[in-house]
Nucleic acid binder design. Structure first.
Length: 269
DNA sequence: AAATTCTCCTGAAGGC
DNA sequence: TGCCTTCAGGAGAATT
């Protein structure tokens, strides 16, 4: 599932192929995504892409008359393909620029395409989001200010977009392991010093995955793509029942906030 | 206000 | 081999 590193890698991958280019056709095969897809064929006719940016896991494609906001949900992907490439099932929307198209493929349709004519950062979906995880605005003290008054599990807090954006289940799980913090520990029972370590580990794991994405997802033209992380690098995520790579104890799993959460009860307290 | 539960959807995995 | 059931998962919405 696309987490922030995959979204950033996607943004970097498509940007050079579409910035400055003019749309000559839009095809909507399936308008029923998370929310109905707006009439992009009319909105984008003849429009030129001004920029491709990102906020949280949203990709923002800017035009002179507004901004297309794209979210990949958990099974979505954007690819640059030749116009004559046959569409596959679940290729829901495509923006064509002459001989090339930007295609949204999303089997589970948890993704979204939204349109706004104002400042995209003021859009209802974006205006209440917390800080970017890799920015200085997200630090030990900012996390402490939130966590110190909350009894919810620390894992739920760091996965809450109002605390910090872009930390999905995989990276939350891995960062908590790296920081030695039990995912279910109440927010108000984690010291500032430990939160500083946690923030550090979150940034590290995201940075590393973006770096990976840059090398493994380099080609966005006619490529299937690989995720920004590798199964053999995961310390705990998806390893329930297997031995901890640090202490050998069996990795456990439980539901925290409706999400599978793997952890080592020896290494994480 | 905070915490919890529900919801969308389909591919993959497990059971028999 | 194949059919049927179960379930994960991002994040907004609804509910407690």
């Amino acid at each position: 599932m696309p987490e922030l590193p995959e979204v950033e890698t996607t943004r970097r991958g498509i940007e050079p192929h579409i910035v400055g280019r003019r749309i000559n056709r839009v095809t909507i095969r399936q308008p029923r995504l998370r929310w109905p897809v707006p009439p992009l064929d009319k909105l984008l006719a003849g429009q030129r892409v001004k920029s491709v940016s990102r906020r949280a896991k949203y990709i923002l494609i800017e035009f002179a008359n507004g901004t297309l906001i794209v979210h990949l949900g958990m099974s979505g992907s954007l690819r640059i393909v030749n116009t004559n490439t046959p569409s596959r099932p679940h290729d829901h929307v495509e923006l064509c620029f002459g001989k090339q198209c930007l295609r949204l493929h999303d089997p589970r349709r948890f993704g979204a395409m939204l349109w706004t004519e104002g400042d995209p950062l003021k859009h209802p979906r974006l205006c209440d989001l917390g800080p970017e995880p890799l920015s200085n605005a997200f630090n030990g003290e900012s996390l402490y200010r939130i966590a110190k008054n909350r009894r919810a599990p620390i894992k739920s807090l760091i996965m809450d977009g109002k605390t910090v954006v872009g930390v999905g289940n995989i990276y939350a799980t891995e960062a908590l392991f790296a920081a030695g913090i039990h995912p279910q520990r109440a927010g108000n029972r984690v010291s500032l010093a430990r939160l500083e370590i946690l923030v550090d580990e979150i940034k590290k794991v995201l940075d590393h995955a973006i770096e990976r994405g840059g090398t493994t997802l380099r080609d966005f033209v006619n490529e299937t793509g690989t995720p920004g992380y590798f199964a053999q690098e995961l310390m705990v995520y998806g390893r329930a029942g297997e031995p901890c790579k640090l202490c050998g104890n069996q990795i456990k799993t439980r539901q925290i906030g409706q999400r599978a959460s793997a952890y080592c009860s020896v290494c994480q307290r």
